[in-house]
Amino acid sequence: MGVLLKVEDLTKSYFSGKNENRVIKGVSFEVEEGEFALLMGDSGSGKSTILNIVGGMDKATSGRVFILGSNILDYSDKQLNEYRRTTVGFVFQSYNLIGNLSALENILLVNGNNVASARKLLDDMGLKDRADAFPSELSGGEAQRVALARAMSKAPSLLLCDEPTGALDYENSRKVISSIVSLNKNEGITILMVTHNPAFLPLADKVIRLKSGWIESITVNDSPLSVSELKW
């Protein structure tokens, strides 16, 4: 397995007048192909910021982010757009589905209007009967699984999940995390997931802990559990 994601000396600062607020203070880590990595830490530790930068949605102040050997921080807006469309999938805590498109159409939006493929993804997510439902008609778990299906519809090299179960109850969280882990184990999708939930630790191949913008620790788990084995 090669390195899919390599973050080097990443920093991010917000400026208010002359005041600099550095939220990422030189972070470096790697995620290998097919790995399921967790990004954990307290609120304000910089998890989501890193995920947004890796996802090509935010700019870093300095550092390098290599995806398959290319530094995306050097990308132009057009290249970043292409990167977001083809290479990386993003699952947000608040689903971010388009309200006026049905579950199926939210997937068709990004998969080149391939109806059969979109239906299969929904089927895989256990949402076969919810294809024509609009986001307002979906439960949180269903909406998140639609968002996951949408992210997967691009067949991304890297799936980024920002607290995907943060707004969900136990049962829905279990369904969503099962789907995510299944993508990793069965499809070999590389996943970088931000979470607060320590219960997911045993599922991950690698756990990157952040504290106040620094890497606190990086732990490698040689024998991750499957979801069914998880005591949760």
Partner: peptide, 14 residues
């Protein structure tokens, strides 16, 4: 603005 942002986040072309 939300729809536009989601479009951009999903890498859907300008």
């Amino acid at each position: 603005i939300r729809d536009y942002s989601i479009f951009k986040a999903l890498g859907i072309g300008g």
